[in-house]
Design a protein around this nucleic acid. Sequence first.
DNA 1: ACTAGCACCTGATCGC
DNA 2: TGCGATCAGGTGCTAG
Length: 273
Amino acid sequence: METVRRGLSPILRGRRIDQVVVQHPRAVRRQPGGAAEFETAVRGARVGAVHRRGKYLWLDLGQRHLVAHLGMSGQFRVGLDPGHRHERARFLLEDGTVVSFLDQRTFGWLLADHGDGTVPSSVAHIAPDPFESGYDLTATSARLRGRRTGVKRALLDQTVVSGIGNIYADETLWRVRMHPDRATDSLARAAADGLLRAAHEVMAEALAAGGTSFDPLYVNVNGESGWFARDLAVYGRAGEPCRRCGRPIVRESFMNRSSHRCPRCQRVPAKRR
DNA sequence: ACTAGCACCTGATCGC
DNA sequence: TGCGATCAGGTGCTAG
């Protein structure tokens, strides 16, 4: 998302949005008045700063915010020809630039939210992410240790800390040699701090590589892939040797999705949740 | 108040 | 060639 934000910012900032077309009603399902309300709210607005918290992105439109979440398969792309199969909304800027919102699985959404300079109400329920100035490691660590669940669930819970998804959760846990089912309330303060620092580190490295992408669904606004997939230690590497100890990485089912870990470096804990 | 589990979608791939 | 099962990077709602 940060890669997307960085791509969008120079294109959008300071520009007026002259036209908005919603091609799929599901893209604006969170808008109470539907596509018409969304289009009316956004058309003619001038874009200020482009913000992000966790996986939520928003454009400051003065009296409003245009909030976006990419879900599992959303993209923002610049300069696409019309008629793309998965285009859900299209914006025309005053300088003629076309910005498209594409989303194959339609889990993503757009919302013209109220607000003026603060965090939009649709984003207010999540915790700060490690990259923002208001992020408080000590408070986040305390929140994490206050949960009664497994550490991976807690890392994925955006109300504990935001921005961590399935890939970065697995990579973080491998880095600190922790099993995903380790009980949050069994963590010493230092261990919880270390876990959060590692998450920040993993995401910073991914960002430096331009993001993580395995396929054309995960690209920047110009359609280009990031390179962090090369550096993944466990995610998507089931059966391949652990980069620390050589044992084959295992993939296990978790919340209807997958966890990847090294069975030697990340042993099943005594206190499990 | 908190946690777990599933519903919400499309499309690619794999085994039969 | 076809068909069902499985998999995919995330919430958001609700039952317990």
